[in-house]
Each structure stands twice: as C-alpha cells, then as structure tokens.
C-alpha cells in the first residue's frame, strides 16, 4: 500500500459518498445514468468473488470490497425503487451490450489464467474501464450537469487516475506490473480527459458545468 493507492481508494470511496449525498439531499437521481450504476454492480460482483473463496488479503481489502458491493446495490435500489420517478430512461440510452460483449470477449482472450474466477476478474477490469460511458454519453446529450454530479465524476475519475502513479511506484518498489489492470486503467482514465477539462476550466472556477452547444 502506497500513498497513491490509498488516495485513489479514498477518492473512490468519496465519489460514492458524494453520489449518495446528492441522491439523498435532492431526493432525486436526475442526471445519473442508471446503466452506469448497474454496470458497477456487475463489476464489483464479478471482481470480488474472491471474498467468497477465502482468499484473504487484509481487513482493509475485505471492508472496502464489501462497501463497494453494498453501496452500489443500494444506489441501484435508490434509483430503481425509492426515487424511481426522478430517473428518465429516455436520456439514458447508451447500449450497454456494446460494453459488456466486447469486455467478455477480451476477458476470454486476455486473462492471467483460464479459470472462471480469473476470466471474471479480467472481465470486471475491462468492463470497469468503460462503465462510465453511459454516464458521459448522458452528460454529452443533456449538455449540462448539476455541480454535485460533476464532483462525483471528478472523484471517480481521480480514483483511477491515482492508480497510475501507484502502478509506477509498485514497479520500482517491488518490480511488479499488472498489464491487464494498467492498460485498462489508462483507457479508463483517458475517458475522463474531456470531462476533466471542463471541470477544471468551469466548475472549479465557480461556473456551471455546461458543454458548448
């Protein structure tokens, strides 16, 4: 565990707390893509299977995994049941099969071991890399976002961004490289670049998040 990894994880944790705060205080999930949130549930369930296989890493690791599974399921519940009328499926139109299908194919080709757990792990890494696309697509479509939603996205983007210096650190400190995680992580971070540009040049200057028409 190094400082980049810890900050990355805390940023991930913060993003979920920001999202929960947004939904609870505005009593609305307007502007949030249900499809992206559903993909995260799939990502966590397929990646954290090791929880049930007795593959113990640390209390920190187990607690975080349980939190990510639990909170992502809770968010789906809030969106689908509790605040259902505030979710507009008409603008959440990205085709998730374009993300799930290729991720599955990639996982079948590129994995560390040809076992169910390892294929699902690789699948979860590839799927996570692109899971934000329905959300970004929705943002692009509506052309604007509530400020709190942009803070959520910024924290989520920072999480994978911070994993990059973590991997560089690990390469020099213990000589390990996880090519699947690194390549997918670079793609994932890259998807946020346009968003971050607008976030830094507008939202952090006190302006509303608006895309040029």
């Amino acid at each position: 565990m190094n400082v980049f990894r810890l900050l990355g994880d805390l940023s991930h944790l913060a993003s979920i707390l920001i999202l929960l705060h947004k939904i609870q205080t505005t009593r609305s999930c307007r502007g949030i893509s249900f499809k992206t949130q559903a993909l995260y549930v799939v990502v966590f369930l397929t990646r954290y299977l090791d929880l049930f296989l007795g593959d113990w890493v640390s209390l920190y690791n187990t607690a975080m995994k349980l939190f990510f599974i639990g909170s992502s399921c809770y968010i789906l519940y809030l969106m689908k049941l509790r605040f259902r009328p505030t979710h507009d499926p008409a603008i959440d139109t990205f085709r998730v099969e374009y993300l799930v299908g290729p991720s599955l194919i990639l996982a079948l080709i590129f994995n560390y071991k040809y076992t169910l757990v390892e294929i699902l792990w690789a699948f979860s890494i590839y799927l996570e890399a692109v899971a934000i696309m329905p959300q970004l697509f929705m943002l692009q479509r509506t052309g604007e976002a509530e400020t709190i939603t942009t803070h959520y996205l910024a924290a989520l983007g920072a999480y994978r961004g911070l994993y990059i210096p973590n991997w560089i650190y690990r390469y020099f400190s213990d000589g390990t490289v996880d090519p699947i995680a690194v390549i997918a992580g670079l793609v994932q971070t890259g998807l946020y670049l346009d968003f971050f540009y607008v976030y830094f040049t507008r939202v952090l200057q006190g302006q509303k998040f608006e895309l040029p028409a």
């Binding site: 990894r5 994880d9 991930h12 990646r47 090791d50 296989l53 593959d55 890493v57 690791n61 975080m64 995994k65 990510f68 560390y112 071991k113 076992t115 757990v117 390892e118 792990w121 994993y163 996880d178 995680a181």
Partner: peptide, 10 residues
C-alpha cells in the same frame, strides 16, 4: 503455484 492470481488491488 496457486490456482488463482493474487489480486490485492480494488
């Protein structure tokens, strides 16, 4: 050699 690769990241 273990049957699974050890993934210690989240």
């Amino acid at each position: 050699d273990d049957d699974t690769t050890r993934h210690d990241e989240l």
